[in-house]
């Protein structure tokens, strides 16, 4: 389990990294926390000719809250930082709360926000949460910077909107709207394993206590994170009664996904988990929304 030979670069700035990526084209691979790439290289599944180590690019490691309450996280922000940073806890609490479900503390100490997002593993928690939060992805290339919505960023199985030579540099999470609540739930074989299925839910109530909107995303059950459109539609304008939640969960399980089967869980079992977890996550999210926990300063 030794990797094939590769050239190694350790740029100090984004500009420098972009130059190297451009020079080597698809043969180059950015190295962030290395928690997926390095094992893949040791299995010789991944054989990049050039590794561009971003760990010295300090300008990518930051968390900042702006005047509008949006949380800006540099792509090299460690997952462990997301878990403990006050601005993230207050401004993007779902992201902070999900972190303990991402592998183990040791892995989160190395693993980064941008690495996980750009890797776009269908069973990863971070892409699903960023999609539920309707985050924006700031992408830089030699030509300039662009902003990509979460829905457009995740394009398929390990696929993103990143073009060769581009780097994800920042993720921006909008603040939770008033009267909103959120929850993250997953079922994994062991704590920290790839989830068999998981759900991130953000719900907002209107003044009358009905569901104004919801963003429910599912992980481990599709080519990438799945935004549950049918469940969203089923909930819209409904009071969050147990029956309404059941119906939305049913819609998610039956219509929003066609889960894959693998050695750990059949398609039918995953479908069942989607239903159960969606119902439970919605219950928790609505409870929070109606209890006023949607005030982002409380936790």
């Amino acid at each position: 389990m030794k990797p094939a030979a590769f050239a190694y670069h350790r740029p100090a700035s984004v500009d420098e990294a972009l130059e190297i990526l451009h020079a080597h084209g698809s043969d180059a691979k950015p190295l962030a926390g290395g928690q997926s790439l390095i094992p893949a290289m040791n299995f010789r599944l991944a054989r990049p000719g050039v590794l561009v180590d971003l760990n010295r690019v300090t300008e990518l490691d930051f968390v900042r809250r702006d005047d509008r309450g949006e949380i800006h996280c540099g792509a090299m922000t460690r997952q462990r930082t997301l878990e403990h940073h006050t601005d993230v806890i207050r401004g993007a609490p779902l992201l902070a709360e999900t972190m303990p479900s991402v592998a183990h503390a040791q892995i989160r100490n190395r693993g980064t926000l941008g690495g996980s997002a750009a890797h776009a593993d269908p069973a990863a928690e971070i892409p699903a949460v960023l999609l539920a939060l309707d985050a924006r992805f700031i992408v830089r290339g030699r030509e300039g910077t662009r902003s990509v919505s979460a829905e457009r960023f995740f394009t398929g199985l390990f696929q993103t909107a990143l073009a060769p030579g581009e780097l994800l540099v920042e993720v921006v999470c909008p603040p939770p709207p008033p009267r909103s609540g959120w929850a993250f739930l997953e079922v994994a074989r062991r704590h920290g394993d790839y989830a068999l299925a998981g759900v991130a839910a953000v719900v907002t109530l209107d003044e009358r206590g009905r569901c104004a909107d919801s963003r429910i995303t599912l992980l481990g059950v599709g080519e990438g994170p799945v935004l549950a459109a049918r469940a969203r539609k089923a909930l819209k304008g409904e009071p969050p009664t147990p029956a309404a939640l059941r119906e939305a969960a049913q819609a998610a399980a039956a219509k929003d996904v066609d889960p894959p089967g693998d050695i750990h869980a059949s398609s039918a079992y995953r479908r069942q988990l989607v239903g159960v977890l969606t119902r439970r996550a919605l219950a928790a999210a609505f409870e929070r929304a109606s209890a006023g926990a949607g005030d982002a300063t409380k936790r």
Binding site: F43, L45, P122, L157, Y194, G222, E223, G261, D262, H264
Partner: peptide
């Protein structure tokens, strides 16, 4: 081979895709 040993997690999705 290696595909069988370590690739099962995404095999179904990848094959359909």
């Amino acid at each position: 081979g290696r595909i069988a040993g370590v690739g099962q997690r995404v095999l179904d999705t990848a094959a359909k895709l």
